[in-house]
Design a binder for these strands. Structure first.
Lengths: 195, 195, 195, 195
DNA sequence: TATGAATGAGGTTTCATTCAT
DNA sequence: GATGAATGAAACCTCATTCAT
């Protein structure tokens, strides 16, 4: 019964994340979080005024994580981003399950919903900038770089969602062919914008 | 006190759908469904053995709806599909909210999860066939028509998710530019497959 | 979906008995009985005004069965009765489970309780008479034949209850030794009553 | 609104026992227990994870009570045990009603069933030892002391069950005559074992 | 005669939240 | 700071019973 006293907000959030994915939205109870963290429910209430505050904490944390990754990936190139996306594209993806679960919860919580949109827009922006690095300009006339970022991000999330549902989703094949498409677009971009 | 109102399973499912989107996963209670439908909770249990069965009923219903639309869209062309996707791409989209909610629920229910994957694969397939009609062959060498279907569907869902979260998501702009991209790909496909 | 119309009260009681033992008091619902009998709940209400009436029907039926066996066993001798008791002395004994279940229910239903007592007294009486046949008079002075009947019946039920609870209850051994005891008492009875 | 009344598991079990006998299996609801104990239903669930656990708690409690009595009775003699059994042999016996109710419940719960069998076997054992004290050896050849314990216990339970059902069961008479029988057996035992 | 849709009261259970310690 | 006993509202679910057909 060793009591590792002094649990931090941050730690609680990590445990809560774990719980959320392990138990799903339905069974995501404060009791479960407390058990996972090895503390009592009272302790959670010492750190978060309500359950909603805890959920918000999770989202904020994800937000920060995302920002860090994005700023990192700014220094790398697109390949890195794709590799990362591919690795998260699976039936058991913690990351995307969490995202879907929070998205589902966000429909009834405007604050969370807004934060999620901020995260996504930052991702879109970062992707757009990365694409610019390898394309220098949009390979298709009339399609802005912003839109390429949006579409790229949408594609990655959309594929992830399919993989999340379909056990034998052909991740390898699809990502390989997706890179093919990007390659072709890149080669056009380098020649001239296509009308 | 039995009043044979004559409510059908189908009607209950419709009311349940309405409830699910109006109240969100968290507040999607059988009492709420019962109230919405104007029956007692017992009545729901007469038609569905558990809440989960009701949820499954909703999914199955969506499945059938999807199938019908897909078989319809086979006779139409891709433009139709895009228009439909665009119309569903909004901050308040009942359709996509329901989908996300069910997806979230599916993580803890393999049966639902499997059914969802079936729906998606059917959509992918239908899209692939429609693309073939206007492309006759894949515009990018090494990218199978199946993959085009998958990617197209992923894109549509990904965009919808963004629109769901971001109030001022530029639906018009993005879809217009997406069509631009498709147009370009089509023109390539008509010349020759690109290496 | 062949509907064997015209189910009788008697048949319903048999199905109800089966249900009671298969599902236990707790899950002994009219729905379960109806399902077992292949009819609807309404049908049960056609034959029995309430659930209690059905339970009473079961008890009455058992009563009649008992009477029949008792009057039969009057013609046979004690050995028969013992063999029958032994065969019913097991971990899975339908007969005794039913008896315990009904006894439990009887605590809140005086009518049932009274009927059960009538059954038992009849059994006691029959046993007493059978003992008289082989003993001609009580082998122990001061112990009436009525009491022997009561004690014998109590012993049989008590052993059955133990067997009902204990998986490896040594039925064979105990009954063999019980017969030994009876044998000894009999031999005394034949010599002279013991003081 | 948390009022630390400080109700203990033990107390809850006592209240539950009271409820069980007062209301019978059918009406043995957690609401009733909560009301009797003066707490809310939630409180019960704080102490017992399910209703079944509470029932198990009752059984375990009875188990311990039995053990205590048994170990006590080891120091006393058989007369004590008989007197105790007789006092519990009545139409309203809390003790035996509880036992029957739990036995009925045990048919659907192997854990409870097993515990009951353990209690009974301990009783059998204790009785056998006590009989040995006054008999020194089995008064009937071929009948082991273990079996005497089993039979004695069965007799006591069987008589109790009859008394439970029959309002005017002749407790006094039967127990007096039962002691007579034991006396006779004892006197044999002292002479020599009977063949 | 029998059915099956519907009811409503009440059961067990869960859970965010409170508060004395 | 942290705990854990307690709450109470509300969730899911069951079931005897009713009644139009």
């Amino acid at each position: 019964m060793a009591k590792p006293n002094g649990i931090s907000k941050q730690e609680l959030i990590q445990y809560a994340k774990q719980c959320l994915v392990e138990k799903g939205t339905e069974k995501f109870t404060l009791r479960a979080v407390a058990d996972t963290a090895g503390v009592t429910q009272g302790t959670i209430y010492y750190h978060f005024r309500t359950k909603e505050q805890l959920l918000l904490g999770i989202v904020e944390d994800n937000c920060e994580t995302s920002w860090q990754e994005i700023s990192k990936s700014n220094t790398y190139v697109l390949k890195q981003a794709i590799a990362s996306a591919k690795s998260r594209c699976s039936y058991d993806s913690f990351f995307h399950q969490l995202f879907i679960l929070i998205t589902a919860a966000s429909f009834k919580n405007d604050k969370i919903r807004y934060q999620l949109s901020e995260i996504i827009q930052a991702e879109n922006q970062a992707l757009s900038e990365n694409l610019l690095k390898i394309w220098s300009e949009s390979p298709v006339k009339g399609v802005s770089m912003d839109t390429w970022g949006i579409m790229f991000n949408a594609m990655v999330d959309g594929l992830a969602m399919q993989a999340l549902l379909q056990k034998d989703f052909p991740v390898e094949k699809v990502y390989q062919e997706l890179e093919q498409v990007i390659g072709v677009l890149t080669s056009f971009g380098k020649k001239e914008a296509i009308e």
